[in-house]
Design a protein around this nucleic acid. Structure first.
Length: 471
RNA sequence: GGCCCUAUCGUCUAACGGUUAGGACAUCGGCUUUUCAAGCCGGUAAUCCGGGUUCGAUUCCCGGUAGGGUCACCA
């Protein structure tokens, strides 16, 4: 195949995007980029009833967040525009006319109710319904107020090749006279996407396996138009984590932007999504964008569906967080914190205990970060130390206070603090009798990061003040 | 129900007919340590069932079972 690769992502604006849609976009994007081809975004808004206002903006925001950048689309003009189907109606009419002229398209003589009646009757008889069995001998001329149907030129089986699934076939019963243009003047998906794919020079069509059974329809249209179909690349479904259903909006599939709000990195989403339905072989599984483009291979796309796993996503996000620079960490973490806590020194402490940046907000809301900017209350002290000798503990704290006050302001580092406190602690039979109270004095918490680091972050004055107060 | 498709640890997966069936997540245990988190080391755990083909099947073929998809003036 020497022609230039052109792929497209063609969502319909019927609500928010979920991970399944994004993965389709990603695969089309990766394949185009790998081949230095073109990735087109096309909006398929031919169903005016299901259309949801704002969906297009939402789709573009998702793709933008993930860095899946289209070469051509509604907001990136190119030679193949317009990129919104409702603005291409004349083009569909032109193709429809070609079919009419060939005698392969005709106006539906029945009302919707009549067709439904046919359908009910045949189903009642236990037979599969085929519209073409009710087709009239002679066609009226089409004036546009009724649906335009495709006339199946030849009742036959279809055999075709799918890049992922291999050789596929379907019997004659899979093909029927289907609607090309609806009575409202908009084309159906079955017709519009083919016209667009032809006009835009699409070479590879990525889409979910729900379209496999309608492939004979597509092939029949290509045949009727005497045009070679593109390569079909059918993607496996993403399954819901519980149960075995395809992950859809009804099964709790989240809005992709929820992952953004929760503080997942776009790099993680791309990495995870790429590996859900594709595997390059080998044992590496953390990949950056450029690496994904490099390794992506249509022959290694899976056929069976894979379940969505939030835990693995969290793990992968941690791995990507580890790859961030100090500056990037600060940006991401401070976004979720009040200005009082914009202290670069607490960043490493937070980083090692989150899997996504939204966790920072929760830590803050649970009060786990209060001690960095508020003097703790020691109300719980009696609860914690009720069985231990309170006198001995305050004695130990006093000793610590003395030792630390001897440290110079500029030497007030975690190493020095540790050294001087450990000298005291080692003399006790139980280090915990000093170290735990210190932690508590500084943080007001039972569980916290290393108290020496906390002391360094608080600084000498605050540290001493808190020890004093605790005593 | 008809048609199409899929099947390896709980989960994601690797193994172009010959491997002690490998890795990752999760889980369990240990180490480290002042607690938590992190980190390091290790353990448990899989070829859906039944027939073939073959010297030899996770791998190829057939059947069963289970699961998915689809049968619209939706995409």
């Amino acid at each position: 195949m020497s022609e230039k690769v052109v792929t497209r992502f063609a969502p319909s604006p019927t609500g928010f995007m979920h991970v399944g849609g994004v993965r389709t976009a990603l695969y089309a994007y990766l394949w185009a980029k790998k081949n230095k081809g073109t990735f087109i975004l096309r909006i398929e808004d031919t169903d005016k009833e299901r259309e949801v206002l704002g969906s297009v903006e939402h789709i573009m925001e998702c793709l933008d967040w993930l860095g899946i950048k289209e070469d051509e689309g509604p907001s990136a003009d190119g030679p193949n525009g317009p990129y919104i189907q409702s603005e291409r109606l004349e083009i569909y009419k032109k193709y429809a006319q070609i079919l009419i002229d060939k005698g392969l398209a005709y106006p539906d003589p029945y009302t919707e109710d009549e067709v439904n009646e046919f359908r009910e009757q045949t189903e009642l008889a236990g037979k599969p319904f085929l519209y073409r069995e009710h087709r009239l001998e002679k066609f009226e001329e089409w004036h546009g107020a009724v649906p335009l149907r495709f006339k199946v030129p030849e009742i036959k089986s279809y055999h075709w090749h799918d890049v992922v699934w291999g050789d596929l076939s379907a019997g004659p019963e899979a093909l029927d006279d289907f609607i090309l243009i609806k009575s409202d003047g908009y084309p159906t998906y079955n017709f519009a996407h083919i016209v667009d794919d032809i006009e835009m020079g699409i070479t590879h069509v990525m889409r979910g396996q729900e379209f496999i059974s309608s492939t004979p329809k597509f092939l029949a249209i290509y045949e009727a138009l005497e045009i070679e179909p593109p390569a079909f690349v059918t993607l496996p479904p993403i399954m819901a984590p519980d149960g075995k259903k395809k992950l859809g909006k009804r099964d709790g599939a989240k809005d992709v932007l929820d992952y953004k709000r929760d503080g997942y990195l776009p790099e993680t989403m791309i990495n995870y999504l790429a590996m859900l339905g594709f595997n390059p072989g080998g044992e590496k599984e953390i990949f950056e964008r450029d690496e994904l483009i490099e390794i992506f291979d249509l022959n290694k796309i899976h056929r069976a569906g894979a379940k969505w796993d939030d835990e693995k996503l969290d793990w992968m996000n941690k791995e990507h967080i580890k790859m961030l620079s100090t500056l990037e960490l600060e940006e991401n973490i401070f976004k979720y914190l009040p200005e009082d806590l914009w202290n670069p020194k607490i960043v490493p402490l937070i980083t090692e205990r989150i899997s996504k940046f939204g966790d920072v907000k929760e830590m803050f809301e649970r009060g786990e970060l209060d001690y960095f900017y508020k003097t703790p209350e020691y109300a719980k002290a009696k609860l914690i130390y009720k069985d231990t000798a309170v006198d001995r503990i305050s004695q130990n704290l006093s000793q610590s206070l003395d030792a630390l006050s001897k440290l110079d302001e500029k030497d007030f580092t975690k190493e020095n603090i540790k050294n001087s406190l450990m000298q005291i602690a080692d003399k006790l039979k139980n280090r915990g009798e000093l170290l735990h109270p210190i932690r508590f004095a500084l943080s007001g918490l039972d569980k916290s990061p290393d108290p020496f680091i906390i002391a360094e972050i608080l600084g000498k004055n605050e540290t001493l003040a808190r020890l004093q107060k605790a005593i």
